[in-house]
C-alpha cells in the first residue's frame, strides 16, 4: 500500500481530476452563457448524450476523430437551434422544455445505439498532446500539460468566455438581456436575437462536452453521461455565473472524484465505506457553497420569457 502523498501519485490524481473535469467545464461554460442571457437549459445532459453518440458513431464508421468532433459540435449546434427556437420564439417554460430535451436525448441516443451499433466496441481516443517545454516541467508538466486537445480547449475557453461576456458588444448584450430585457429592448438590443445566439453557443459547448467525454473514453453505451449534464448545470450555480467560478467548481468536482478513486485503489478507503465515499464530490460541492457564502444573485430575468408589449 503506497502513500497518497508521493509526488507521482499526486500528479496522477491531478491529471485524472482534470480529465474528469473537462466535460463538466465545457458543459457548464455553455450553460453559463445561456443563463447569463436569461435562459435556463436543463437539457444539457440530453444534448451531451446525442453528441457523444453521433461522435462515437462517426469514429466507428469513418475512423476520423476530428470529423467526430465536428459532428458532435454540429449536433450541439442543431440542438441549440431547436432549443433556442422553442424558448425564444415559442416562450416555452424553460425548466420543463429542458427536461424534454434531456428525455429525448436519453431515449434517442439509446435507441440509435441499440439499433445501429449494439455492441459497445472500443474506438480510437483523442491522442494526448504534450505541450513542448511545458510538458517537461517536473511533476507539473505531467499533471497539466499531457492531455488531449479538447481538454486544453476547454480550459482555454475560460478566458475566451470571460472576454466575450465582459469585453464584447455581444457579451454586454447577453448580460443586459439577462438582467433587464425591457431596458435592453428599449436601448435597441434585440432580446430575441441575443438570447437565440447565446443559447446556440451554449448548446454547442454541450456538444463539445459530449465529444470530450466519448473521445476520452473511446466507448459509448446507454446513458453514457450518467447525469453529468445535470451536475454541470449545478456547477453554474456553484460558480455564480462566472466562467472562472465554473472552472473552479468543475475542478473541485473532478479532483474530489479522482482523489476518492485513488484512495479506493490504494485501499485507504475500506471497501465497506466505498458507497459513502462516493458521495464526497456532491457533499463537498454543497458544503463549499455554504461555507464560501457566495451570495451572488442569479441573472434577474433567468427563466423569464420576454415578449414586447
Amino acid at each position: 500500500m503506497s502513500d497518497f502523498f508521493t509526488a507521482s501519485i499526486l500528479v496522477a490524481t491531478i491529471a485524472s481530476g482534470i480529465r474528469l473535469a473537462t466535460p463538466y467545464l465545457f458543459a457548464s461554460l455553455g450553460e453559463t452563457i445561456g443563463q447569463k442571457s436569461g435562459v435556463l437549459n436543463l437539457g444539457v445532459d440530453g444534448v451531451m448524450l446525442l453528441s457523444a453518440f453521433f461522435g462515437y458513431w462517426t469514429v466507428l464508421e469513418r475512423d476520423n476523430l476530428w470529423l467526430a468532433v465536428a459532428v458532435s459540435l454540429v449536433v450541439g449546434l442543431v440542438m441549440g437551434l431547436i432549443y433556442a427556437t422553442i424558448t425564444v420564439f415559442f416562450h416555452a417554460t424553460q425548466g420543463i422544455s429542458g427536461i424534454g430535451i434531456f428525455l429525448f436525448g436519453l431515449g434517442f441516443s439509446e435507441l440509435m445505439f441499440r439499433r445501429q451499433v449494439g455492441t459497445p466496441l472500443p474506438v480510437d481516443k483523442l491522442p494526448k498532446i504534450e505541450i513542448p517545454l511545458l510538458a517537461d516541467i517536473p511533476w507539473l508538466g505531467e499533471a497539466l500539460f499531457q492531455h488531449n486537445p479538447l481538454t486544453y480547449a476547454a480550459f482555454l475557453a475560460v478566458p475566451v468566455v470571460v472576454f466575450m461576456l465582459n469585453k464584447t458588444t455581444f457579451g454586454m448584450n447577453v448580460r443586459a438581456v439577462g438582467e433587464n430585457p425591457q431596458a435592453a429592448d428599449s436601448l435597441g438590443v434585440s432580446v430575441a436575437r441575443t438570447r437565440f445566439i447565446a443559447i446556440v453557443i451554449g448548446n454547442t459547448f454541450a456538444g463539445l462536452a459530449g465529444a470530450a467525454l466519448v473521445l476520452e473514453l473511446g466507448i459509448f453505451q446507454q446513458n453514457l453521461t450518467n447525469g453529468l449534464g445535470f451536475i454541470a448545470v449545478a456547477l453554474v450555480y456553484f460558480g455564480a455565473w462566472r466562467p472562472v467560478g465554473v472552472m473552479t467548481g468543475s475542478l473541485l468536482y473532478g479532483l474530489v472524484a479522482a482523489t476518492v478513486l485513488q484512495w479506493k485503489a490504494q485501499g485507504i478507503i475500506p471497501r465497506g465505506a466505498s458507497d459513502i465515499a462516493s458521495m464526497a464530490p456532491a457533499v463537498l460541492t454543497i458544503l463549499a457553497l455554504i461555507l464560501l457564502a457566495n451570495r451572488v444573485p442569479a441573472p434577474a430575468a433567468l427563466t423569464r420569457p420576454f415578449a414586447r408589449h
Binding site: 415559442f90 416562450h91 424534454g100 429525448f104 436525448g105 431515449g107 435507441l111 446507454q222
Partner: peptide, 23 residues
C-alpha cells in the same frame, strides 16, 4: 427498445411546452 418511449416523452414535452397556443 423501450428507450423509444423515453425519447417520445421528450418530444411530447418539447412540443407541448413550445406550442404557443396551448401555452
Amino acid at each position: 427498445p423501450s428507450a423509444l418511449a423515453i425519447a417520445l416523452n421528450g418530444i411530447v414535452v418539447v412540443f407541448v411546452v413550445s406550442s404557443d397556443r396551448v401555452r
